[in-house]
């Protein structure tokens, strides 16, 4: 079974009329700086994306890795993204969290009850990394937040 998309893509490549734009190649190469060679990756729990507000502007996503659970409430407003997060169990004194997009990383301390928040991120790809003294960093898989 050959999927039509691959067929059409092969024909498009041979026709050569829609090459990959330079900026797309450039941004693809640039994600290299987001590499965390020794990080543990927390995967998303498949059924955890759900609306938490009646107007559908806010969604909860849960990620789990060995020993840590990330709950992210992602809210869209005025074209920007706010993230209110909770990490459990509390990762400990000195722990920091990075909320990352391909173009911007915001670092926050985690409160003693495990909360953190960032505002004003651009819509698009998003990942959170928890840094704990004496442990490997734990990163969530990337999710794309629609504007």
């Amino acid at each position: 079974m050959i999927n039509d998309e691959y067929f059409l893509a092969a024909l498009r490549l041979e026709a050569g009329t829609d090459p990959i734009p330079l900026r797309v190649s450039s941004s693809s190469r640039d994600v290299w700086r987001l590499r965390l060679p020794h990080a543990v990756t927390a995967t998303q729990e498949a059924t955890t994306i759900r609306s938490v507000r009646a107007d559908d502007s806010s969604h909860l996503v849960r990620f789990v890795a060995t020993g840590l659970t990330f709950d992210l409430e992602v809210t869209e407003g005025d074209g920007l993204i706010d993230v209110a997060g909770h990490i459990s169990p509390y990762p400990g004194e000195g722990a920091l969290v990075d909320v990352r997009s391909p173009h911007l990383t915001l670092t926050r301390r985690i409160t003693p009850n495990g909360h953190f928040a960032v505002t004003g991120l651009p819509p698009g790809w998003l990942s959170v990394v928890c840094h704990r003294p004496g442990h490997l960093p734990v990163q969530t898989t990337w999710v794309r937040i629609r504007p």
Binding site: M1, I2, N3, Y6, F7, A9, A10, L13, T43, Q44, E45, A46, I49, S51, D56, H59, V61, V74, E76, T141, W142, V143, R144, I145, R146
Partner: peptide
């Protein structure tokens, strides 16, 4: 609203060889 693949691809589409 949130686009995410919960798991990475484990099986490559054989059809992709046409590329």
């Amino acid at each position: 609203p949130v686009v995410s693949s919960s798991e990475a691809v484990t099986e490559v589409d054989p059809a992709a060889v046409v590329l």
